[in-house]
Amino acid sequence: MLDFSILIEYFPDYMEGFLNTIQASLIALVGSFILGTIIAVFRITGIKPLQWLGTAYVEFIRNIPILIVVLFFYLGLPSLGARLDGFQAGTLGLTVYTSAFIAEAIRAGILSVPKGQMEAARSSGMSYIQSMLHVILPQAIKLVIPPLSNQFINLIKNSSVLTIVAGLDLMYFADSINGDSYATVSTYIFTGMFYLILTLPMSYGSHVLERRLAKSS
């Protein structure tokens, strides 16, 4: 059932896909975190147009399949005059899609920081953005770590969506190895293990971080 010669014979292919998946995941992780935070802040500013924009973004993006988001960036953008290759389009799609979920998690975190914190910060003469950055967000992050790490694990798994736009990720090479070897079960079990190498430390790390932050407050 499990044929280790597949792993050895196709190791360079696995590695290329693995490294591309890491790269796409890292870019999307940082990107979706920044984008998600901005969107979350939009939604709670109390400034109507920003609030509306943030809500529309979140509701629109998170209620369509990630596949469509990625296909849009790959096939749709060229008709608007911008062409991204499979890796770029896939990573961008992954970033945009994940950011909607991150925004919701962060928004919930921000709302659970007591109101008095913002009042104290604002009444000391700091701007809204300064207050957010130095007072509210650092506290919100603590509450947001468990849902956020869930989203990041999802992100790594969702990165396999790059395959459909030939994004040269791990799953893309898995398909290609399968097409060459016909050893379907072995090929995908090894592929799953490469994903585990990324996701298991991630969930372990989030547990440790969670505990450490809980201690400091």
């Binding site: 007591p114 008095g116 914190q117 009042e119 104290a120 910060a121 604002r122 009444s123 000391s124 003469g125 007072v135 650092p138 506290q139 603590k142 400091s216 407050s217």
Partner: peptide, 18 residues
């Protein structure tokens, strides 16, 4: 600018816990 000139102390202190 206005607020820099007015200090405020709250019932629940509102210190930054982090």
């Amino acid at each position: 600018k206005l607020r820099r000139n007015i200090g405020m102390v709250f019932q629940h202190f509102n210190l930054y816990p982090h």
